[in-house]
Write a protein that binds this DNA or RNA. Structure first.
Lengths: 248, 248
DNA sequence: TCCATTAGTTGCAAAAAGAAACTATAATGC
DNA sequence: GCATTATAGTTTCTTTTTGCAACTAATGGA
C-alpha cells in the first residue's frame, strides 16, 4: 500500500549529522556554451581525459568545490573562466539532472547552465584539454556525447530557441556593437528560419532596448549599416505580447 | 590575477574517489504546491519540527534518499505523495538553489519543484506535521519562511504567472471537468487582473486543447455553463504567437 | 411575467503583422 | 561619370488579430 515504506521515511533526515555515509550525491556543474561562428550556432565541447568515457566528447564542467565555490552559480562562473576564459557573458541556469544511472560511478547530480557569448570574447583554456566548437544540427551535435550530455544539450537548444521568441538574449551572442541585419541573421541562424525584415525591425524598435551609436557605421558590400549597442540588461522583452493583453 | 588560484583547480576532481571528505553538499528537494481555494491562489506550507528554524513555516521537502530515490524527480514525486497524498498532478522542476549560506548547517543544495493541483485532490499527510495552505499575496505569503524559501516561492509565483501566458497549465489547478468561466477566473486570480471574455474564449478555442463534454452542464445562478475536459498533455500552447510569425 | 444573473456570441474599430515594393548608399567595372 | 550590383533601411497596402461593447441565451426567483 504505502509505496514509501521501503524508504523508511524520515530516516534520511536523522542521518543528517552523520557525514560519513554516502547519502549525498556527487554534485557537478556542466556548461552549455553557445556562440555563433561562421554563420552557425556552435557549442563548446571538451574531450574527457579520464575514465569513465575517457576521450569521449562532453560538455565542459566538473565537481563543485565546497571550499571555494560559495554557490552553484559561483561554481558555474569559475568553470566558465577555466574553460572559456570569459568573466561576464550571459549565464543562466538551465536545469538539474540527477539520478542513479546517469554516471556509472553512482548517484550523481549536475546543474547545467547555459552561456551565450560572442566568439571573439572566448579564450579557450590553456590547459591541455582537447577543446572544440561543434556546430548544432537540429537539436544536437553530430558526435556522441558522454553520459546524458546529449539530452542536456537538446534541452539547452530548446530553451535558447524558445527564449529568442520573448527575450533579447540573442544580443549576447554578438559583439558589443552590432548592426540590425547581424542581429536578424543571428535569429535566423538559431531558429533556422528566415524572418521578415520590416516586422523584425518594427519589433526591435518597439522594445526600445538598443541604442544607435551616432555616426558609427559598419562597412561591407552594399550600403553601410548603422551600429547599435544593447542598452541594458533588464527583463523587458522584444516581443511583449501575451495573455495580459486581454486585460481590461 | 587568477581568481581561481585559491581553489587549486583540478584538485576536486582527483578527490572524487575519496568518499569520506565532505566534498559533496547536502542535497534536498523542496516543493511549491499551488492550488486554488476560495478564489485565491494558495501554497502548501509545513511547520518545521526540527532545528534549525524549528517551528518556522517552510516549503515541504527534505533530503534526497539515495537508496530509494532513483532520480531527483522521483524524490519530488515521493515527497509530493508524503505531503499532499497526490500521485500525478502537474510537476515541473523550477530551479536549484545551492550555496554555503542558505542553511546554517553548511553547504546545501535544493532542487525546487512546483506542482499544480485541484484542491479537491489533496489529502494532507497524516503525519503530525503542522500543515497549512497560505494565500499568495503579491509574490509571497504573509508569514516569514525558513531559509531562502521566500525567494524560492517568489520564483515559483513568477514562473507560474509567466507560464500562464503561453501554456495551458492552469487547467491542472481545476478538477477534471470545468467550465470556461471557471478557467478564466483561474487565470484572473493568478494574474490578479480581469481578462476580456471574448478574447479569452477565442484563444482557448484556437488552441483546441479542450473538449466539450456533450450535454454536461454546470448549474449556478444564471445560465448553466458547458463543461469541458482537458484533451491531452502535449506541449501545444494556448497562445502560440511568437517571433516565428515573421517567418516567410 | 419580469428581472437579475451568468453564459455565450457577434460585430466593428483599432492595432499589429505579413508581404512586397520602394528608396538610400556604398563598391565595382566600364 | 555612370550603369550595375549589393545590401540597408523605409513605406505602403492587405490581412489577421485584438479590444471592446453590445447583443442573445438560459436559468431561478420575486
Amino acid at each position: 500500500m504505502n509505496e514509501t515504506a521501503l524508504c523508511q521515511p524520515g530516516e534520511a533526515e536523522t542521518q543528517q549529522r552523520a557525514a560519513a555515509l554516502p547519502e549525498r550525491p556527487f554534485f557537478t556543474v556542466d556548461l552549455v556554451i553557445f556562440t555563433i561562428r561562421a554563420e552557425r550556432l556552435e557549442v563548446l565541447l571538451v574531450k574527457r581525459a579520464e575514465r569513465p568515457r575517457k576521450s569521449w566528447w562532453a560538455l565542459p564542467g566538473g565537481l563543485l568545490d565546497l571550499r571555494c565555490d560559495a554557490s552553484i552559480e559561483a561554481c558555474a562562473v569559475r568553470k566558465l573562466v577555466e574553460k572559456a576564459g570569459v568573466y561576464a557573458p550571459y549565464l543562466e541556469q538551465l536545469k538539474t539532472y540527477g539520478s542513479r544511472d546517469r554516471d556509472p560511478r553512482g548517484w550523481t547530480a549536475t546543474t547545467a547552465y547555459f552561456a551565450l557569448m560572442a566568439s571573439e570574447r572566448v579564450q579557450l583554456g590553456g590547459n591541455q584539454e582537447a577543446v572544440r566548437w561543434a556546430p548544432i544540427r537540429g537539436d544536437g551535435v553530430d558526435c556522441d556525447l558522454a553520459f546524458d550530455h546529449a539530452h542536456i544539450l537538446a534541452d539547452a537548444v530548446e530553451r535558447l530557441r524558445s527564449k529568442l521568441e520573448y527575450t533579447h538574449i540573442a544580443v549576447h551572442l554578438l559583439p558589443e556593437e552590432f548592426t540590425l541585419p547581424e542581429l536578424q541573421r543571428t535569429y535566423e541562424i538559431i531558429l533556422q528560419q528566415p524572418l521578415d525584415k520590416s516586422s523584425f525591425r518594427r519589433r526591435v524598435a518597439q522594445a526600445d532596448l538598443l541604442e544607435e551609436i551616432p555616426g558609427k557605421l559598419r562597412d561591407g558590400p552594399g550600403r553601410p549599416a548603422q551600429l547599435y549597442r544593447f542598452r541594458d540588461y533588464d527583463r523587458r522583452t522584444f516581443f511583449p505580447r501575451s495573455i495580459s493583453r486581454h486585460a481590461r
